[in-house]
Design a protein around this nucleic acid. Structure first.
Lengths: 113, 113
DNA sequence: TCATTCTATGTCATATGTGACATATCGTCA
DNA sequence: TGACGATATGTCACATATGACATAGAATGA
């Protein structure tokens, strides 16, 4: 992910209604991270449900154990594309993904609102 | 995103879903592309609803007109991350995104209401 | 016609993501 | 204890995505 994003935004000044817009952008960043978290959790859950090790999953995905670990850890270097396509390869439907994305909303353990 | 698969995809004309197996196109690939399509459409819809030109939107996103055009065109060079974060910046909620993703599901031919 | 605005498409330098590898930690079992 | 399997973390070469730019097409109005 872009760790320069915030810096760029701050440097930009953000002409119109700056403070409000800035907060909005911050929230957007947070939302994206939460969505990824939901996908990460879903990936780990599916893997474990299938009784696969990270190595086994990596083989299925034609990736590596370390990348699987990073996917599940929500590492910033992992794209949403990778998470989504991995979940799809594990048999998730787009409805499942939609759910995972919404499920990643806030803190874990919260009942859905 | 593997360019080889994309090339195959596009070379096929990407018409109907019957030849995909021969081209090595998995269900997962198809699903991912459909999800992106849903996001692309949603982005365009939101932009137009706000009465923004691509240039104006690009400015808001701190991107360029050409990239916005590519996002909306579903260009293979556009990542899901970019689509999602752009939509979030336009004020979409994760529920909206979940919907867009599921909306990108099936036949695009349907001139939906 | 020309001029303007909006959008599409191609290219490129550079930023970012990815798979692979090494290595560390942790738990389990003999 | 040592060995093994599973997971985490750091690094790197290479692949891919991104913003910026140029340019073209399409639509509108003078």
């Amino acid at each position: 992910m872009k760790n320069t994003k915030r810096a760029k935004l701050e440097a930009a000044g953000w002409a119109v209604g700056s403070v409000k817009k800035f907060l909005g952008l911050s929230e957007a960043d947070e939302a994206l991270i939460n969505m990824k978290r939901g996908l990460s959790r879903s990936l780990r859950a599916r893997r474990q449900q299938e009784g696969l090790s990270q190595v086994q999953l990596a083989t299925r995905l034609r990736s590596s154990q370390s990348r699987v670990a990073k996917m599940e850890a929500g590492d910033p270097s992992v794209s949403m594309d990778l998470l989504v396509s991995s979940l799809l390869l594990l048999g998730a439907t787009s409805a499942d993904l939609a759910k995972a994305i919404r499920g990643g909303e806030k803190g874990k353990g919260r009942h859905a609102a």
